[in-house]
Structure formats: C-alpha cells, structure tokens
Design a protein around this nucleic acid. Structure first.
Lengths: 258, 258
DNA sequence: CAGTGGTCTAGACCACCAA
DNA sequence: TGGTGGTCTAGACCACTGC
C-alpha cells in the first residue's frame, strides 16, 4: 500500500493477466479468478457494480465494461433491480445449453431433456497419448471413462463416451451419475466445482460398428452423427473429452451462424 | 424542426424500430436502415462516431454503444485510427465464414477454399409451399434453383442445392455463377446488394440416393452430413434456402459452443 | 423506500493511422 | 499533425426489484 492516490486494481495477487491490458480486462480477469477460486459460486450473486468499483479502485463504468464481456460470454447473468449472478448449468432456462440435438417435431411441453439415461460403463484408466494431448495431462495421469445411452420417448438416441481427468473429479462414481437427475454439467459444478464454460465440436457422418448398432438397437448401416467435443472450464482449461453418436432420424443438430 | 432543444434521433423516417426502445437501439436501427438502403455499402467506411453523434443529436457514447452491438454481430468492422467499415464477405479474412467444413489435416497454405466448383443445374421455377413458408414468399413468386458440386484436392466433397427469391436476384445467370471467383455471398453483395448476415443450420447424418452417390462419385451406403440452411439478410429477412451434402471422410464440420 | 442494473451525457486522455 | 476509434471517469437520471 503506497501513500498517494491508490494504485487502481492490485489485489495482492501475483497472476493478473497480461501486464498492460486495459483496466477493464484486468478487472475481468480478477473476477474470473474469484470464480475459479470458488469465492463466488455458480448461482450466487457477485457484489454490486459500485462495490466492485470501490474494491478495485476504478469507476463503475469500468467495472460495467468488464461485466459486459462476462455477460456476453454467458459467464454471468444480469438481472435488473436484483444483481449480477454467476452463471450455472442448473438454472432451468439454460439446461442442456450444450446439447444441440432437438426433436424435428417440437415437444408439447416446450423444452426437452433426455427421458432416460443409462450408464453402461464406468471405469478409471490410464490416460492415452491422444487424451493427454487434448486434456493437457501427463501420461502418468489417469482419467474416468463413462459410457452411457440417452433415450427420448423410449427410443435409444445417443451413445456417448466421455473422459474426465481423475484429479479434478476425485470421488466420482457410477452410483453418483446414476442417482443424479438434471444435466451432468450441473453435477460437475455442485459436486466438483468444475464449471464448463465453452466447448469445441467436430461433426461427421459415420456408420456404427456392430457393437454400437447393438447398443443403440439399430440395424447396421444406419447413418449416425458423430460429435467429438472438447469442453473447457475457466481460463480455457480443457476438462472433458466427449464423443457422441446421435441418431438423427427424428432429431437434428441445430446451429446458428453469425 | 421545433425550436427548442433538438429532439434527438428523428430522421424524417416513418419506420424506426420499436417506439420506446433505448436511444442506442434506435440509432442502431437507423444505421441498419442505411445499410439496407445502400447508403453505406459493404467494405466502405461509415461516418465517424462524432459525425453520427451530431447527425442523430446524441452523445458519442450512445453512438458507440450502437456500433458496439453492430460489431458484436459482425455487421461492422472497427479499425482503430482508420474508421468503422461495413462488413463484407469479400474481405480476405472472413471468406467462407459460413462454410464450417474444415479439412482434418490442416492445409499447407493456411486457409482453404473449394478447389473446384461446378454448376450442374440452374433454373427458374415456381415456389413450392415449403419454400414459400421459409422465404416468406407468395405461392405465385418464383425462385432460382442452383445445384453445384464443390471439390477439394480434385475430390468431389459437397453437393449443394440452393434456392433464391427471383425478385431479389433479378438477372442472375449460370454464366455469372460460373465466371465468378470467390465466395457466392460476395457475389450476392456486389451484384445484387444482398448481404447475408446470419443463418440457421440443421444437421443430420443421411445416406445418399443413387443419383446423389453418382454425382459425388461415391459408393452407395456412404454416410453423408446433410446441412439445411436458412440464411438471413438485414432485419432478419430470409433470403436463401440451402441444402448441402458433405462428405466427411477427410473433413469435419467445426462448431463452437458458448 | 433503498438498492440494483440500464441508459445517457460530457469531457479527458491514449493508441493508432495516414498524410 | 489531425482525425479515428479505445479507454476511463464522474455524475445524472431511469426502470425494476424487494422490503
């Protein structure tokens, strides 16, 4: 603490983004740190703009611009008159935000989720070279591997494999996954403090192997949409690899180009 | 013109967005009108923020917020020290912005475009009921129908059908499409003043018909990625229906989830 | 009513670009 | 050097929420 005119920002914090970034980006980075450290948890309100402005010794406008960006990236939700809240996968209106498969005929009850979910495999294994590369792991690290089938209206529709770094998901169990209702990403948030923020997907049309066809109860030769996903948490840290096979007879993958 | 304190906004303009929208949204709407009317064309600079502030009788900050949104929607490009420019599909770095198919192995020369393009059908027909619904046409209106094949590295990879409202594309010819280099959407801009701004896509895995397989020189039973697109110009006006069949043996459709 | 985010203004200074 | 967009500030007022 120097004596004259407080230094703006500073938070007795070693890692503070690029040294000479604009003030509002430094503020944004500090807020993200608070998210990652769990100081403000998903679903909870963050301090008001005025409070943050005082804390960081900047004007309200600068805090506002930082929060503007966080809101644009869906990391935060603003509600006029109430406050600003850390975004969560548990909130009703953003559930299945990352599941882009939609029924061709819109469901009666409005939004939909999988009607059935069955874990058909759960194990902890050593990382493969490919996984290590994608998840930034060392070859000695281990991962959880989950395989599950999602069904809509009684019909198996998605066969999904996913891999998670064991270090970040200590204690994950098949029991836990089976018991839980609601999106898997909501479970990750509440039980492991891991919030998925962004993902990249690669899509292809493929034919199922015999095993895959049996699992999905489909004839061989049925074309399936293969979706490879790499999901990231705060600060662009990769935290999940997922590969899905989607049956697109009565569903489609929707996308917006901007 | 009243005498006291100029009224802010107003542009002797009947259609001006929602009546009681915030000022900056009204400004944004006025700017969009200028785009649509062709007052400021793709690639050209728009007036400086100060000029616009004076013209619309608002502060620079309000104009700035309007332009912020336009920039976020990729309708405008800002360049510090130079000005703000109407976005264009002709610009080198945004070419093929709407083509999400990428080679599995990154190309040597960096960015890629189709190596070959062949128009295999071009005709003017009456609108179908489905097309009329999607393009907001009357059943008496007619459309252009184009079918083409795109190839990469000598291999046919995309079979694409597209439909355009004939009214908006008066004079479009197969000749024109064959002669032109560069993205089709750039041609639409320069020749017809139609700028595509946004699109919705629906993806499915399908098997080709016999005719489609022959056209793409593929064996029957090859799974293909079917991409249905509805593309919009300014003010959310639908202007193109497109259906593509993508061969995803050596390419993938990339997507970002936020 | 007090507290929150949302809008709007006016003005200062900076970083970048072209002539 | 002058003009452009980019950042930052300070302050006013509005709209919405909950007590």
């Amino acid at each position: 603490m120097t004596t004259h005119s407080a230094p703006a920002v500073e938070e007795s914090n070693g890692t503070r983004g690029p040294a000479f970034a604009p003030l509002y980006l430094q503020i944004k980075s500090l807020i993200l740190n608070a998210f990652q450290s769990g100081e403000w948890k998903p679903g909870e309100p963050i301090p008001s703009e005025m409070e943050l402005a005082n804390r960081y010794r900047v004007s309200q406008g600068t805090v506002r611009k930082a929060i503007d960006e966080l809101a644009a990236e869906n990391l935060v939700i603003r509600r006029q008159g109430k406050g600003t809240f850390v975004a969560t996968h548990s909130a009703q209106h953003v559930r299945f935000r990352f599941l882009r498969l939609a029924p061709d005929a819109p469901a009666e009850d409005g939004s939909m989720g999988p009607a059935s979910r069955t874990i058909i495999e759960f194990k902890r294994t050593r990382t493969t070279a490919e996984l290590a590369r994608q998840l930034h792991l060392r070859s000695s690290d281990s991962v959880f591997h989950v395989r599950r089938v999602l069904g809509f209206a009684g019909k198996p529709t998605i066969l999904e494999d996913l891999w998670l770094p064991a270090n970040a998901f200590k204690g994950l169990s098949a029991e836990q996954l089976n018991t839980d209702r609601g999106p898997m990403y909501a479970l990750f948030e509440t039980k492991f403090g891991v919030r998925m923020v962004r993902a990249e997907e690669r899509l292809r049309a493929v034919l199922p192997t015999e095993e895959q066809a049996q699992t999905l109860q489909l004839p061989m030769g049925t074309p399936l949409l293969q979706v490879e996903r790499l999901a990231y948490t705060y600060h662009d840290q990769p935290m999940e690899v997922r590969q899905g096979l989607y049956l697109t007879e009565h569903h489609h993958y929707r996308n917006e180009l901007n």
